Deep mutational scan, measured.
Amino acid sequence: KSPLTGYVRFMNERREQLRAKRPEVPFPEITRMLGNEWSKLPPEEKQRYLDEADRDKERYMKELEQY
């Protein structure tokens, strides 16, 4: 499975939280809201997602080498 970027990891995590709080909001609007939230997120909060993405990318590269 391909590695996910930090942005995609953030979107996946927050999308479920936002949909639970506001189920009436259409999917494209949720994506737009989360995109704005990501762009305003402080670098230190973004870093968690970026670090997870880096670890996932390393895992993926190792799997490719073994293939």
Rank of each mutant, 00 (worst) to 15 (best):
K21E: 15
P43A: 12
E24A: 08
Y7L: 10
A20S: 09
K62D: 12
L64Q: 14
T31E: 14
R55D: 15
P43Q: 10
P28Y: 06
R19A: 14
E58S: 10
P26K: 09
P43T: 11
K57N: 10
P43I: 06
R48M: 05
Q66R: 07
K21M: 14
E44H: 09
L41E: 03
Q17R: 03
E44C: 05
E44Y: 01
L41V: 03
R19S: 13
R48A: 09
I30W: 05
M11K: 03
T5M: 11
L18E: 12
E24C: 07
E13R: 03
E44T: 07
Q66L: 11
R19M: 14
Q66E: 14
E29K: 02
M61S: 12
L18D: 06
E63M: 05
N12Y: 05
Q47R: 08
Y7I: 11
N12L: 09
F10P: 01
P26A: 13
E13H: 02
S2M: 14
E44N: 08
K1S: 03
T31D: 14
N12W: 01
G35S: 15
K62M: 09
T31W: 04
E13D: 05
E58Y: 10
Y7S: 11
I30M: 05
Q17C: 03
Y7V: 08
N12M: 15
E45C: 01
L4A: 15
T5I: 10
L50P: 02
A53Y: 02
R59A: 12
E24G: 14
D56T: 04
Q66M: 11
T31C: 12
E16V: 02
K57C: 06
Y7E: 13
R19Y: 06
R14S: 01
K21N: 12
R19L: 13
Y60M: 14
I30T: 06
K57A: 08
M11D: 01
A20V: 10
Y67C: 07
L18K: 13
L64T: 14
V8G: 11
K46R: 09
R19E: 10
Y49W: 14
E16A: 07
N12V: 06
V8I: 13
D51N: 09
R19N: 11
E44V: 07
L41H: 00
P42M: 02
E24Q: 06
E44Q: 06
L64N: 14
E16W: 00
P42W: 00
M61R: 11
K46N: 00
L50D: 14
E63Y: 03
E58T: 11
F10D: 03
Y60Q: 13
D54I: 08
R59N: 11
Y7P: 05
M11V: 11
R48F: 03
R14K: 06
R15D: 01
K62T: 13
Y49Q: 04
M11H: 01
E45Q: 05
K62C: 11
Q17D: 03
D54P: 13
P26N: 10
Y67F: 12
V25C: 07
E65C: 07
L50C: 15
Q66N: 14
S2H: 04
K62A: 12
P23G: 07
A53K: 00
L18Y: 04
E13M: 06
E16D: 06
L4I: 14
R32W: 03
K21P: 00
Q47E: 09
V8L: 11
E13G: 01
F27I: 15
E13S: 02
R15K: 14
L64C: 13
Y60H: 14
V8K: 07
E58F: 04
M61I: 14
R48Y: 05
F27N: 15
R9A: 10
R48I: 08
L41F: 00
S39F: 08
L64H: 14
V25A: 09
M33V: 15
K62I: 05
A53S: 09
E45P: 00
P43V: 09
P23L: 06
L34S: 03
E58V: 09
R14D: 01
A53I: 04
R9M: 09
L41W: 00
L41T: 01
R15F: 11
L64D: 12
R48P: 03
A53R: 06
R48H: 10
V8T: 10
K62G: 12
M11W: 07
V8R: 11
A20H: 08
Y7M: 10
Y67H: 03
P28Q: 14
E16L: 04
Q47G: 06
E16G: 05
F10Y: 11
M11L: 09
R59D: 14
E52V: 05
V8Q: 15
L4H: 09
F27Q: 14
F10I: 05
L41I: 00
E65S: 10
M11S: 05
R9N: 02
S2Y: 09
P28H: 14
M61Q: 11
Q47C: 02
P28C: 13
P26F: 01
E63D: 11
Q66H: 07
R48C: 02
R22H: 15
K1M: 05
E24K: 03
